[in-house]
Write a protein that binds this DNA or RNA. Sequence first.
DNA 1: CTCTCGATGTTCT
DNA 2: GAACATCGAGAGG
Length: 199
Amino acid sequence: MKFSVLERAFYARPTLEVAEDLLGCLLVRELPDGQQLAARIVDLEAYIGEEDSACHASKGRTPRTQVMYGPPGHAYVYLIYGLHHLLNLVTEEAGRPCGVMLRAVQPLHNEEAMRALRQVKGRNLCNGPGKLTAALAVNKDYNQWDMTLGEQLWVAPRSEPLQETIQRGPRIGIDYAEPEDREAPWRFWLAENPWRSLR
DNA sequence: CTCTCGATGTTCT
DNA sequence: GAACATCGAGAGG
């Protein structure tokens, strides 16, 4: 199976545009043993710059947020609650700290291998931001990874036009943010897709 | 089905 | 020392 690669120009656009266009695209993972896994992106959230109080970069440039200030098309992976890795894709031009966090994916290719990595039944496999990283063996070693290389971890364009309609609403789990940012409809998902995140 | 709670490590105060 | 872009187990309805 050969998957093509979204190039850097795709990510170097306004974050909300990138977020919408990423829905239905394929997150592709190549394991050390050569196995390829692929899953459709069905649920995600945008985090938009220092002025977005929900964005990690709202605290400014730190060792942790450094990668968001770098060029687009790189991965921002961090550990949350000491347990779960979350995967973001850096967007917009270098110097502007923005990104998209992946919340849920739908297994498309080699689901058995994902189940081997994460032993659960049903849609529990990857319908949450911490679940999908486990199912695809993504951890903080992939922080700053260049997603345009087309090796180990990358995103491929939609294999066919979107059938589902796109829905949007407020982001999840950001109670600490300012009300206007908490309410901003910067989460996008595919309507009625059973693989989307539960919350 | 719902709710509550504990786990665990990094970051920032 | 608190907070954290979460998850799963266990209790109860």
